[in-house]
Design a protein around this nucleic acid. Sequence first.
DNA 1: GTGAAAGCGCTAACAA
DNA 2: TTGTTAGCGCTTTCAC
Lengths: 334, 334
Amino acid sequence: MKRRGMRDVAAAAGVSVSTVANVLNNPGVVAEGTRRRVEGAMAEIGFVRSAAARQLRGLPSRLVGSVTLDQSNPFYAELNRGIEDHLDEAGCMLLACSTDQRGDKELRVLQLLEEHSPRGVIITPTGANPGRLAAVSGRGTPVVLLDARQDGADLCAAAVDHVLGGRLAGEHLLGLGHRHIAFLTAGDDIEPVRERRAGLAAALEDAGAPPPVGVRAAEAGFSAGTDAAVSKLVHFDPKPTAVVCVNDIAALAVIRALQARGLRVPGDMSVVGYDDLPFAAHVRPALTTIARPIRALGRVAAELLLAEGPAGHRHRELMFAPRLVVRATTGRIG
Amino acid sequence: MKRRGMRDVAAAAGVSVSTVANVLNNPGVVAEGTRRRVEGAMAEIGFVRSAAARQLRGLPSRLVGSVTLDQSNPFYAELNRGIEDHLDEAGCMLLACSTDQRGDKELRVLQLLEEHSPRGVIITPTGANPGRLAAVSGRGTPVVLLDARQDGADLCAAAVDHVLGGRLAGEHLLGLGHRHIAFLTAGDDIEPVRERRAGLAAALEDAGAPPPVGVRAAEAGFSAGTDAAVSKLVHFDPKPTAVVCVNDIAALAVIRALQARGLRVPGDMSVVGYDDLPFAAHVRPALTTIARPIRALGRVAAELLLAEGPAGHRHRELMFAPRLVVRATTGRIG
DNA sequence: GTGAAAGCGCTAACAA
DNA sequence: TTGTTAGCGCTTTCAC
């Protein structure tokens, strides 16, 4: 069976294609009877409009690209859902791509996306392709940055104040008496991670504590890499009494690695996560973490995107404040 | 700045559009020098190929739809990633849609997808629109069912043997001495859920135990609905000593609701989840659950999809076996 | 090796 | 109120 177009509908209804076009785009102008006949024909032959043809004619696309580091990560999954929710209201759909924080993948994905001339692209940049997003934007595809600031160009952005996030973690720990605090990351640092470290460092400096020592795991999650990082962590001198982790998944892995070495959390080491994913409250000990409004972030990014007209938009940056959630993985020193 | 097409490239390189087309699609046939000149021009003016135009010409689309119940659910997020991984190898992209298990949303999403004439659609059907998928398939868009069998039409499917899954849960519990076992679902039952119940029922029947009692929560997750369901659960007579839940998220919510009532898991009630999501091993008590190879399921669905030629494909159904993972939420009765 | 031309399904401007 | 027509950017014969 083949796909039927407006031409077939026109034939079946005994009218011209422009009349069919009118019942689709301008129903008020078509005579009642004709309209019914055409609608009948459409139903009859199973007419499906061609988005490709409309796009070719220059109408706005209904596709929006979302480029995240990994859509299977609960954080980005939730984010995409926030985006989708808003797009849905506007009759648009989500093209979901993952880069695994690799510059080459990011390039491929942006290329493919651009070929489909989407309504816009929402992206958490890997940072490996500076200037590229400005180029995309310059070619007419609106770009909204997520968790990143201006890529040189002036693009819209939906961001979280990660400096504040890092600071909140630091001040909490300081308040519990910790002074030797580590910052654990996974993989290469992207901008939001550098900001968190900066916030943490600022809090420590303000309190006259030594700067945070950095530890890097090969990747977030349960692996030899995390184990090695934790091993390094506990052998620092002076030994840190607390570690703030780049996200909840890394934090959980760190906790398990610590426990595997016979160390107690928070007795021997306090641990702070980031994101407040749904599981954070339910692991044991329950995770102290920095929460941010994930779904709202996605929604806002989508709103920013759809608000960009083909021309004459002024670029805006929306900033969310994260918030500390104290649970059971942090405790008073001693 | 505007978008440049092959016409602009041709002008810039001083050749005709068909020569540009040749360097794109048939580079071997173009003279070395010409090719370089054209490629230079493409880079120069920032040429981006139009997918819409190619599609209009009848070339295969590089878009694949994925319709899940909720892409923010870790299960579907992981599934989508499996799909994406395979699509990526084939140069295709994922259109990710959620239905929230609502028939009307499913309809809207399928409509939008079809308009974009995707290479195919992978779907976990809500069950609310019988025959619709067959229609889509009939119109030329390959459909791969996920977690569902033939919709009347003969469609490809990547499935899990949920009857076996239910049976595994039942036999495990029976082996621990349980005889009064409940089955807790959330929202309306879709086919895979009915299959799990059937498997559980069969196991109980084989052992001469009474059939499972059903409890329904308004939705999976932490909510008054789950609380109410748990309240119903513990007031059954005879009171069940074990409950198998529709998925890990529901199981966790049930455990917390049970604990909130002062009941102990597994002391007073054993609980079995389904899916073995990453958090299952890390909540406390750690979840006994039925695992299935989620990412592989997505990969296989994508493979099935891309393998369907425009014609002459024979529809195949691939079935995965789930497996019992015993942890700490189930215990011997007593 | 390269170019001219037709047409995919649709929209929009204009004619009737 | 309805019909005619000219492309949108590309692929694809077929001539040169």
